[in-house]
Design a protein around this nucleic acid. Sequence first.
DNA 1: GACCTGCTGCGGGGTG
Length: 814
Amino acid sequence: MENSWAEKWFARKGWEPFDFQRACWQHYLGGKSGLLNAPTGSGKTLALFVPVLMEYVRENQGSWHQEKKNGLQAIWITPLRALAQDIQQAMNQVCEETGIRWRIAVRNGDTSASERQKQKRSMPECLVTTPESLHLLFTQKDNSLLFKDLKTVIVDEWHELLANKRGIQVQLALQHLKTLRAEPLKVWGISATIGNLDQAHEVLLGASAPKLIVRSSIKKEIKVQSILPDEVEKYPWAGHLGVKLLKKVIPIIASSQSVLLFTNTRSQTEIWYQKILEAKPDWAGIMAMHHGSLDPAVRAWVENALHEKKLKLVVCTSSLDLGVDFRPVDTVIQVGGPKGVTRFVQRAGRAGHHPGASSSIYFVPTHSLELIEASALRQAIESGQYEEQLPLEDCYDVLIQFLVTLAVGEGFYPQQLYPIIREVHAFRTLSPEKFAWLLEFVTVGGKALGSYEEFSKIDILADGLYKVSSRKTAMRHRLSMGTIVSDPMIQVRYLTGAYVGAVEESFISKLKPGDVFWFAGRSLEFLKIKEMKALVRKSKKKTGTIPRWMGGRMPLSSRLAELIRDELQKAAKNQLNSIELQTIHPILELQQNLSRIPDQSSLLIETCKSREGYHVFMFPFEGRFVHEVLAALVAYRISISFPISISIAMNDYGFELLSDSPIPIEDVLETDLFSDKDLMEDILSSINESEMARRRFREIAAIAGLVFQGYPGKGIQTRHLQASSGILYGVFETYDPDNLLLAQARSEVLHIQMEKSRLQQVIQRINRQKIHLLKTVRISPFAFPIMVDRLSRNSLSSEKIEDRIHRLQAELLA
DNA sequence: GACCTGCTGCGGGGTG
């Protein structure tokens, strides 16, 4: 009977609670922790907020009208600031309608100083916050008092945090909060569907926690509709823009109320925005653009206008993947392969955003082969195959930051802290020796930095308490908390001083005064750099470079890669059971005639001679990160026996080796080109590992608080970041070779950058596969995009500089 | 002959 008010309240609203909501109530009131798996827009916030209230009412003997202030009862962690207000509103509505007097407050970077003060005097019953802001609370004076009444922590969108360092922050925060409470703390995660929900549960709640995953039975129907070119033979074989299908996209937008058009890159967003505006000038006031380099104020305006149904179209990047939960959108268009099933489903879910509604998404291929990807995506959705989000481990940078956080706050005793850290999934194997190393590092700067005062952050007080006493250290630490390290950005402003947005410094540094570029939907002429700002004015010129940013490269997920190989297998057997495969048939036929279509049991290798030289193409279909390493490995192993210079290129489908002399591929295939033997050694010899580790170290040094990075988008203070982290790297290498942060940098190169485990699986797969080595008379449709990729950029090369010069000389003399 | 790229996320407080 104790949840009767909730039932009545639902009934009064004419709702029927979903089964999963009831299940959450039951488990929650039974004192359990767990993980909720439900699609967005299905009422998952209510599923957990309502039982939190129920418990409160129960503990107050049914009286919820009391005036007595209660302490903080629940913390709601969200990865996005933009979600906080929405959650707060939804909760406030529940409280208003049920009459429960709860104060629900938001605390994040937008929270004003006065609001912070207010919260300090008296905490609300429920705090909606980010992982970073929660950690900032731990640096406050007497902060443990804030949490004395805490009963619940809910981690929203856990799948977004699980696989990155923010997820480790969440793990650390949970473990710490548990120690502040005598009563057991209830912890619930909310997650979208991912391939490893069990693991998501374990990481959040601990290996020893009883497994409790509540799955909603709500099936979100997702319809995938590809926009097909009229004549696939004439559609580009390579490329990434897809604007040739603009004519077919316009009518879809025209007949919709509000559309989100997702692209994969910021420059692609700029281009599509321009092209649509050219085609439909009358949409000028009702369409907008949204990506990470735009002025935050513009972005906020767009989000708001979307909410108020003022916009017909927003062209965007992943910046709108999340955070439009409560915004009305009826059509979603995806331009280009989304590279992963989860991302695609996430985007599709932006449309028809309420229980029961189906979502439909239009897919616009940017080149012909991408149609295979569309077909694979549909298969993935039908069979429910999602990517896994793999948790990170042993991130000492995050742990160092946390140690300083605790020391800035109330301080810690190492012998008490160590077992607590060991309870955290990411550090469950942390040895006492390593912990001792970390303590030495934060107190005296380790072996290398001992003489520098600024690296001796924590003092050991007389009673053994580890505490930061320097106010300057404390302040700097608060300013640089968090695990997100941005690239150096430079502001773009008009001569009048008006702010346009921020672009990577590397882009601006390539421009000459007078160059014209498109940015934020405007044609701008670059004038000069002044006070670390790029000054521009409006230009009438319609042509110009589009800025390129230095974003991520988003390789094809291994799940989707596997499904693409499945689709190829079907095509090879002529089972064209999707409209996409039928459409692309002429190209597949050409591939078949010139070469062959690889299936799951075979690896296709093509060789070809052209004016450029001798090509070898291999098609593992494993995504560009893996191909990059694989290509370097193969080139290296060839070069051991045959001293020829080889340049390499790759895309998500395969890679190319190019040389001016014939590549003896038959011979090297016989010598176990893909052998497991000495695999890692050969890989490390074939790539510039130390340079990669050095670059990786930049982020680690920033998170560990060794270099102060300032704020992103605020000038160019970050310029020296690479330099100073590079110096530190060198110092550690020489004077402190056992430094755990160096080891971490190398491990991140291997596991994150090169996807080591995936690489090993690929090698194993290739060794099982039958190799088809074919000589083609001209470049095949599969090989063409890889070649284009190489032509369009100066791809990395295994060729030594001297060799290249020699070759160029020889060409000149010939 | 076809082609010309590379995402997102966060963020001071104690004292006078």
